[in-house]
Amino acid sequence: MAEQKPSLPVVENFSRRAAVKGAFATLGAGAFVAAVSPLRQAAKNSTAAEFMQQHYQELTAEQKAEVIARLEEEAKENYGVDVQIADDRPIPNTKFVYAINLSVCNGNGKCVEACHKENNHDRDTNQSYIRVLEMPKGTMDMEQGSTTYSGAVPKDDKFYLPVQCQQCDEPPCVDVCPVKATWKEEDGIVVVDYNWCIGCRYCEAACPYHARRFNWKQPTVPPEDVNPDQSYLSNRIRPVGVVEKCTFCLHRTRRGKLPACLEACPTGARVFGNILDPDSSIRWILNHKRVYILKEELGTKPAFFYYFD
């Protein structure tokens, strides 16, 4: 092996050189530790139990109870409220479907607000799972729409198109998730395990409906505003750095109640129900009304329909 030791002017002998190299390596390592010291603060906020927690679907009943107790404790600690986190499971023989009457919706945004409050969204950003597009009459091209409209509604030449998670039967977001942190449950709701998501946001890129939200920061909710009626897969306050989405308010709907956005709608444009029940409103609408499916050509098979009078 060819060896021509390049020499430094000052340090010539081997052991001294090694010592200097070692010193520089130590200095470098020390500087690195100092540079990443903000991580220590982040580590303080997470517990070993949280770090080690298994995927939701792998948890036994006791483990789930432990996890939920821990989460309730954390909510108390971080938000100063006593919350009840349930583990609502799908009702057998139920598949949820949503419909919105576009002839009636006037874009008032009460659903957006109700979602914000019901689901313990970040108060600073007015986060919500619903966005409403104001569209000129005579087109279905979203390119012409605007989500930043304001003032008095409805405007004469406009109609309004609320968009939220379509709970697709072929959800691209579920397919792309590398860690199976999001999946479709038996009642059709696509859920996220907020304690398993790694925050890669591939699902956000894959969703054609802008249904997913990322927690860019820890959500802030004043204690008096926290909705204490929560569910593990639904509206419990989300940790920072994970993706969340509309769950059709499963903490309500899996207990037989209607979703918050529907109850808040003053125009009665929203209809929700179980498609497996032949007497359900939703079934009647799909059989009797003209129905529009958002981006149907993408083959996502939404469980969400827009209809007209």
Partner: peptide
């Protein structure tokens, strides 16, 4: 780019949950 680099181990085959081959 990860929001939760602390959960990187979820990506490891066998000990995590690896959505192969769909993802």
């Amino acid at each position: 780019d990860l929001g939760r680099p602390d959960r990187f181990w979820h990506l490891l085959p066998l000990i995590g949950k690896f959505n192969f081959p769909i993802s």
